[in-house]
């Protein structure tokens, strides 16, 4: 169990995070520059917060009130970097062994070799990191991190430097590591699919604050804030005006009523929630101004004369696609609308 409640003044904003993580992996999802990496660094102890508390499994790692700040060496927290941070002047084996300081000198090599084997890096023991591929470096960094037998695992954008295929493979491998790992883990990411694959819990960070923190399924069902909706990949985010128990989507000329409208500033409408028929609760007419083909679906870009917002609508390939520049009626249902507020 990890409890974090810290503040730290940064150049653009003040980091002010407060969360708890149980033994399920937690994703910190946010746009770049939202303070995710700094949060990890503070937990690992390589950066010092201005004030607050960090408690791991009942042990105080940092408490400004009591003047406690354990050095990173004493925290036993593994941190995996975006650029892997393998020591360039050491071979793979030496890199992994450098993580083995906790165990007796004689057992280190066997322990390191076992991890190297587990991550499929046999034969590379005497190779220097710059001769390893991105995927191999990533696995080597995972092996080195686990060699230190950490109580908590932190991943800083672990796959962002890899291509799609490798990304999938390694995130599979990381998912295995997390499953067999008996402790908390935090994964920092800006990729919602990655966060969803690895972590049952997702916290959304905006400008140094956690604005939404819930389990992954309900986050994708109801993202709550504009940024969260963007991060889960919601294509249409439209500003609204609020009335009493209703919101007015002026861009579509639609009023949604009988809802709690406090604080709502925008609605999100996933592209696949819009259908090309009259059957939905809310209807609108729009001109198809662009047709984008992708392998599994077709995305229509729609526009209305009176709107400066383009609307994206994605349809399965099986449906009959309207002609370019035709004016068509589209509809959607209330249950598919995300009602969103501002994060701060």
């Amino acid at each position: 169990m990890l409890e974090v409640n810290i503040t730290k003044k940064l150049r653009a904003f003040t980091l002010d995070v407060n969360f708890k993580a149980d033994n399920n992996a937690l994703a910190l999802l946010g746009q770049s520059g939202s303070g995710k990496s700094m949060t990890l660094k503070c937990i690992a102890g390589v950066e010092k917060p201005d004030s607050g508390k960090i408690i791991l499994d009942g042990e105080i790692l940092y408490d400004s009130a009591q003047g406690i700040c354990l050095p990173p060496q004493k925290r036993r927290i593994g941190l995996l970097f975006q650029n892997y941070a393998l020591f360039p002047m050491m071979t793979l084996l030496q890199n992994v062994m450098s993580g083995c300081k906790q165990i007796p000198r004689k057992a280190r090599k066997a322990h390191a070799l076992e991890l190297i084997k587990r991550f499929g890096l046999e034969g590379f023991e005497n190779i220097y990191p710059n001769k390893l591929s991105g995927g191999e470096q990533q696995r080597a960094a995972l092996a080195r991190m686990l060699a230190a037998n950490p109580r908590l695992l932190l991943f800083d954008e672990p796959f962002s430097a890899l291509d799609t295929h490798l990304r999938r493979q390694l995130s599979q491998m990381t998912a295995d590591v997390l499953r067999s790992y008996d402790g908390s883990a935090i994964v920092v990411s800006h990729d919602c699919a990655e966060a969803f694959r690895l972590c049952p819990q997702i916290a959304v960070m905006e400008k140094g604050k956690i604005t939404v923190h819930k389990d992954r399924v309900s986050l994708f069902k109801a993202p709550e804030t504009v940024v969260a909706a963007k991060l889960i990949g919601c294509e249409n985010i439209l500003p609204v005006r609020t009335g009493e128990k209703s919101v007015i989507i002026s861009n579509l000329g639609i009023i949604v009523d009988k809802i709690k409208s406090d604080d709502i500033t925008a609605i999100g409408l996933p592209a696949n929630a819009i259908h090309i028929d009259n059957n939905g609760e809310y209807k609108f007419n729009a001109t198809v101004i662009q047709i984008i083909n992708s392998p599994y679906e077709v995305t229509l870009v729609l526009n209305m004369d009176y709107s400066k917002y383009d609307i994206f609508c994605s349809l399965p390939n099986s449906v009959e696609i309207p002609k370019l520049y035709s004016n068509v009626t589209f509809s959607f249902d209330k249950k598919d609308i995300f009602f969103l507020k501002e994060g701060n």
Partner: peptide, 26 residues
Amino acid sequence: DKNLLYAGQTLGLSNTYIFWKIIMPT
């Protein structure tokens, strides 16, 4: 690269070790 320093620290290596064995060779 500061991340090398951070990686060393989180792996439990002493600052002296990191300086002579990681920073200096790099």
